[in-house]
């Protein structure tokens, strides 16, 4: 049985690697389909044909796309992330601090929202059909159905415009005291937490409800177990896989949410960097940022899958 678990886990990791390859291929070719010539775009209208040709060769633009792809992926694997078109700074240098900022934001959001969301989701499942459950369900559907920027703008309207508690914008590099840190983080974290908690509550509730509907939960009840015991001892251990999956998937919504949130609050993270790179068509920067996001997503769902495999009692 142990070897079966190892086999499944390795299988899952291999699948993740294959996926990563397909993803990088897709990202590369989506950006390589640029109409017009990058060299011309970069050098501007006044460039001489010779200069364009020189740059083309220097950038390997004359080579077949597949070769360029291999060169690019090889560079990524060895840590050479390329050079920004826009300001000729190595991409790695541009990304470094920004990535740390985004990770900080994501970590704070996760720490805030995961316990709250799991608690609310489990409680809603246990109190299924009550007013509490219906209110939670309606609210989560509401939050899921509106765009992230609406939640962000509503937060600004409420806390900055009407209550005047917080500044509308945040700059992580001007933080000197704990109080400032709080003020800088509160709005982005609040917005992101709303977005991902709604998903997490829904999925957690569904997982626990499913486990509670199983005959073994009924059996426990008929053995005289209290509702609390049925939930904690019988439903939760079996819902663990799906719940971890829910957490991982919800955290992956962070990736989408962070793009909007960093933009709207002017937060100097990697997502803001990428959005800016799109407007300047800085392809190496876009490609690298995109790969970082996809890597994060794959990491999350692969971990969730592995937890599900390891926690499956039938494989014990």
């Amino acid at each position: 049985m142990k070897s079966q678990i190892a086999y499944l886990v390795l299988n899952r990791m291999a699948a993740a690697l294959v996926t990563l390859l397909v993803v990088s291929f897709t990202i590369f070719f989506a950006t390589a389909m640029l109409p017009g010539d990058v060299a011309e775009v970069l050098l501007g209208q006044a460039a001489t044909p010779e200069a364009v040709a020189g740059l083309r060769t220097a950038m390997h633009l004359d080579e077949p796309a597949i070769l360029r792809f291999l060169r690019w992926i090889g560079g990524l694997a060895t840590g050479d992330l390329g050079t920004s078109y826009a300001n000729a700074i190595p991409v790695a240098k541009l990304i470094g601090g920004r990535l740390a900022n985004t990770l900080k934001l994501a970590a704070v959001t996760a720490v805030v929202s995961v316990p709250v969301a799991l608690g609310l989701g489990i409680l809603a499942a246990v109190l299924r059909g009550t007013l509490f459950d219906r209110v939670v369900t309606a609210l989560t559907i509401g939050v899921i159905s509106v765009p992230e920027f609406m939640i962000a703008t509503s937060a600004v309207l409420l806390f900055s415009v009407y209550l005047k508690w917080l500044p509308a914008l945040s700059f992580a590099n001007e933080v000197q005291s704990l109080g400032q840190l709080l003020r800088v983080f509160v709005m982005p974290v609040l917005t992101l937490s709303f977005v991902i908690s709604a998903q997490m509550i829904r999925m957690t509730r569904a997982a626990v409800v499913e486990a509670l509907d199983k005959p073994y939960a009924e059996m426990a009840l008929l053995k005289g177990a209290s509702r609390t015991r049925v939930v904690l001892r019988h439903a939760l251990p079996n819902a663990l896989g799906p719940i971890v999956n829910a957490v991982a998937l919800s955290l992956s919504y962070l990736l989408g949410g962070v793009i909007i949130v960093e933009t709207i609050f002017n937060y100097p993270g990697i997502a803001k960097l990428m959005v800016d790179a799109v407007s300047t068509r800085d392809l190496p920067l876009i490609q690298t940022c995109a790969m970082i996001f996809c890597l994060g997503y794959l990491l999350l769902i692969t971990i969730a899958d592995i937890v599900a495999i390891v926690s499956n009692p039938r494989l014990r």
Binding site: Y216, M219, G224, S226, R314
Partner: peptide, 27 residues
Amino acid sequence: EAERAALRGTMVAYIPQSAAAAFNPSR
């Protein structure tokens, strides 16, 4: 409900149709 629960298993016990489904797979 609490008094019913106290009697279940001690006064009245239940043997289900499908024991395969009534046993919790993770314990």
